[in-house]
Simulated assay, not measured.
Amino acid sequence: MGATSGGPERGAQILQAERPRLFGLAYRLLGSAAEAEEAVRDALAAWHDAAPAESDSPRDWLGKTVTQLCLHRRTAARARRDAYVGPWLPEPVATETGALGSLENAEQKGLVSFATMTLLERLNPMERAVFVLREALGASYREIARILDLSEPNCRQLASRARGRLGSHRTRLEVGGAERRRLLERFLAAARIGDLARLEQLLAVDVVAWIDGGGRVPAALRPILGRAQVARYISGGYARVGAVAVRPLEINGQTSLVATAPSGALVGVSVVEIAGSQISQIRSVVTPDKLRYLAGQLTQARTPREGRVRARLDQEP
């Protein structure tokens, strides 16, 4: 058991307190919620087994261990991505309850957006680690050098290279608000009734849509370009899936659309980016494996409320 000054109970408290931060770090490094959970579990198990000295900072020890575990996983992940069927998108995570840490402004939300998470795939594992630690978590170059076992100048060089490779593609997302929600509601209403003309009005001329089916669910294997093509695909998609309930939810820092079947099963997530008053990009995840973590989040969110309702009914005469 890991040695801590307060014994096993204190150790458990430390691990519980660190878990959300470690998950946010691992998710940003991997783009996969399932793999991020595995990396965090492995790091926590390593803490128990290694019995670090009481002088070791649990925060630093666990942060370094999670980062190193994720770097090892990136090699295998890259091979899987090369063989991936159709567009690859990150796994969606509901962020209203702080699953990825504090997202108080547009910059913080932009760093976990689908757009940025997809762009991070351009970086090699070490570039991505330096970028995430520096830009998303605010670590100093001295801290990054200690975590990655590199020199500070090397870390600065990797950070500069990462920013250069991402270049002008990085975008700052607008903070979600009433206007964004109204635009999504109009988009959803037009899609439900197959109103192609209204859909096209809501889409930018150069709109792009990516659909991640992973070879498991029928989906376009290449990006769909242009408002007419995207409108037809969206309208046809709603016609194919039939009676689904769609509602807005904050996914990766953006108000998005979440679709569930009559059975309650999660069937898809669409993350929408807006430029001006029109939709410029749509990224949809429909492959079941990538929806599993979000489905678990939604189940956990429902359970306490349903439990309170049942308890209240039981108390009524």
Score class of each variant (00 low, 15 high):
residue 35 E to P: 07
residue 48 H to K: 09
residue 71 L to W: 04
residue 52 P to N: 11
residue 35 E to A: 15
residue 55 S to C: 14
residue 23 F to Y: 04
residue 25 L to K: 07
residue 70 C to T: 02
residue 69 L to E: 01
residue 66 V to D: 00
residue 40 V to H: 06
residue 45 A to N: 10
residue 31 G to V: 06
residue 31 G to C: 03
residue 23 F to P: 04
residue 44 L to N: 03
residue 38 E to Q: 15
residue 57 S to W: 13
residue 40 V to G: 01
residue 53 A to G: 08
residue 64 K to R: 15
residue 32 S to I: 01
residue 47 W to A: 10
residue 53 A to F: 11
residue 66 V to R: 04
residue 70 C to G: 01
residue 44 L to R: 06
residue 55 S to T: 13
residue 27 Y to A: 06
residue 27 Y to W: 11
residue 45 A to L: 12
residue 55 S to Q: 15
residue 26 A to H: 04
residue 59 R to P: 00
residue 30 L to Q: 05
residue 30 L to T: 09
residue 34 A to K: 15
residue 58 P to Q: 12
residue 61 W to M: 08
residue 34 A to L: 12
residue 51 A to C: 04
residue 55 S to Y: 15
residue 43 A to E: 05
residue 64 K to A: 14
residue 41 R to H: 09
residue 42 D to T: 08
residue 69 L to S: 00
residue 40 V to C: 06
residue 42 D to N: 07
residue 54 E to Q: 14
residue 36 A to H: 10
residue 29 L to S: 05
residue 69 L to Y: 11
residue 51 A to Y: 01
residue 39 A to V: 02
residue 21 R to W: 10
residue 62 L to W: 06
residue 52 P to K: 13
residue 50 A to Y: 11
residue 44 L to M: 07
residue 29 L to Q: 07
residue 69 L to G: 02
residue 38 E to D: 14
residue 44 L to C: 02
residue 45 A to Q: 10
residue 50 A to L: 09
residue 43 A to K: 09
residue 21 R to G: 00
residue 41 R to F: 08
residue 21 R to E: 00
residue 66 V to S: 08
residue 57 S to D: 08
residue 58 P to S: 13
residue 36 A to S: 12
residue 21 R to L: 04
residue 20 P to Y: 10
residue 20 P to V: 08
residue 29 L to V: 01
residue 34 A to W: 12
residue 23 F to D: 01
residue 42 D to C: 06
residue 68 Q to I: 05
residue 73 R to Y: 03
residue 58 P to R: 14
residue 69 L to A: 03
residue 70 C to K: 09
residue 47 W to Q: 12
residue 22 L to G: 03
residue 21 R to K: 12
residue 46 A to V: 03
residue 67 T to F: 03
residue 25 L to D: 03
residue 44 L to Q: 12
residue 28 R to C: 04
residue 45 A to P: 03
residue 23 F to T: 00
residue 36 A to Y: 06
residue 52 P to C: 10
residue 26 A to I: 02
residue 22 L to E: 01
residue 36 A to C: 07
residue 26 A to E: 03
residue 65 T to D: 06
residue 66 V to L: 08
residue 58 P to C: 11
residue 70 C to P: 01
residue 31 G to W: 13
residue 67 T to Q: 02
